[in-house]
Design a protein around this nucleic acid. Sequence first.
DNA 1: AGTCCGCTGAAGGTTTTTTTCGTAGAGGAG
DNA 2: CTCCTCTACGAAAAAAACCTTCAGCGGACT
Lengths: 320, 320
Amino acid sequence: MKKAANSPHNDNFSDLIGEIRNSFNSFHASEALIASCVIADPVQVSKMNISQIATFSNTSVASVVRFSKAIGYKGYPEFRMALVSEVSRLGISESSIAELDSGITTDDSIEEIIKKIALADSRAIQTTAERLDVKSFKKVVDAWDRASNIGIFGLASSGYVAMDLQLKLNRQAKNAVAWRDAHTALTSVSLLKPGDCLVAISHSGTTLDVVEVIEEFKARGITIILITNAIRSTATALADIVLHTSARETTFRSGATSSRIAQLTVVDCLCVALAQRNWSGTKSALDQSRTAVGSRSGKKIDDSVNSSLTPTKSRSRGQG
Amino acid sequence: MKKAANSPHNDNFSDLIGEIRNSFNSFHASEALIASCVIADPVQVSKMNISQIATFSNTSVASVVRFSKAIGYKGYPEFRMALVSEVSRLGISESSIAELDSGITTDDSIEEIIKKIALADSRAIQTTAERLDVKSFKKVVDAWDRASNIGIFGLASSGYVAMDLQLKLNRQAKNAVAWRDAHTALTSVSLLKPGDCLVAISHSGTTLDVVEVIEEFKARGITIILITNAIRSTATALADIVLHTSARETTFRSGATSSRIAQLTVVDCLCVALAQRNWSGTKSALDQSRTAVGSRSGKKIDDSVNSSLTPTKSRSRGQG
DNA sequence: AGTCCGCTGAAGGTTTTTTTCGTAGAGGAG
DNA sequence: CTCCTCTACGAAAAAAACCTTCAGCGGACT
């Protein structure tokens, strides 16, 4: 019988892999083989069952059981739990950042495509949030608060964000209207008065139509708010307040889609901030909108309720 | 024949317990019992084997297996791993989770609002990507590939995603049309033939209009693809292929906005996968679309180019 | 050189998990 | 109100994973 009096580690906060490395020289040949595998790729190993690990390490299931017992667990499953736990704590991500940056190739697997795109999108949100200039952000909320009417302009994909913003503002009983082409926008220019604002959404900030629209509204004394991914562009030079999204352009696709997702997040933050400021006013408006939606017997509209604050703790039912 | 140790999705970094809480209302009686136990004492539960859980929750082992599958795992052991992983991570950073869950209050600072929303959104993307069922995903790509025409349906906010999808498919020279209300969709029902497919996008999956549209198209032999946040709903029961987004409903706002961001990511992944498959065909279509856009002298459209592969290293110009 | 000691993998036994299948109960139609 | 259908649930059989036993083999010590 093996001595194995190493550590009766119960669960948490031990450094399992370090432990294994430490006791490496007290292992027998096949135990050492297994240990090497565990150290080399804990993530992978933690996903294998006992026979897979046996094959993978060129040993036998019996040895895996013995190994598990040697380092202090009742059996393989218990060891596996500990390993999973460890891996999760360390946050060893299976795929390195660099790998994901490498771009999608024609022979990437579906899994890789999904992982890469998701990472790009979620990072766009994170970095945008981190970099967002809070002073400008506050200025936007102020401007919206003061404005009696808000114009929103976005082309193509950015147009969807524009429409989304309109929806969110209207829901808060805020006058807002979205335009998705330059002609319509310019036609409606007299809708806004000095003191109102125009929100222009543009990934690149160089699109000619966007620039034209901004110039026209600016000339009439409208406050120009720009949401864009470009640090410096024709549009940023013209705008009064700029909110900058940080979607990186990777090699496999333009940053435009990520940037749009970041735009949505920014817009969402702005609306929540605005709602928070006008809490009491918003509340009744929201109640009215809820009632209005609810009255359509039995029908529910997706995304019906809020994007807003819920001060009580009651779970918001009827949504899912 | 055993499948080698490849992992369909990575278990780390998702928000399992939140997920369970989130889909609580789509559980059946005994599943709900199990869910309660898991939520009430995840640590304890993570140490039980399947029969212990069954006894503990006054249900049966079969139900535990069904529960595990319902929330997206292959079986009980896989779920258990995820739970262990979650518990372990929670033990370390209970602060951040609690913080996220705490909801936005009327006296949160702007910085906090931004951080919370960004975290929720980026998590939604991560979790969705991790949990996405790759088999269904592939089926969708297949179905799109075969279809000579693709219908897309989404209401309100989901409608923007629908339009975005249309844009992306058209860019690949794929016939697709987006409808944003039931009436229009039903009027156009004869546009699709058996073998074609309808992509329905719905956060809740219970909206009456959505269900009606699905039923009508299904009756005509159209393949129904559903993108939704609900694990089980009227719509999921009808659909042929379901892709599930995992946006968590937090206390401060509905999950709808996060869910929409997740929908966008899913749609983007699908389009890239489709483009990859038909690489040669896509390439020429994209070239044409580039040329078309470029010919508008000096004008550029935001988000114009792709969401597609760039096999050469040349940066996709004209975008920035 | 012979014997002993203890590691090792194969085979068989045990536990755990999954699947199948019959039943009961809810909901809808006649 | 009754019958029918359709779905959820759990019991039990089937499958998988895991553990134990045992015989063989290699090295070490006498």
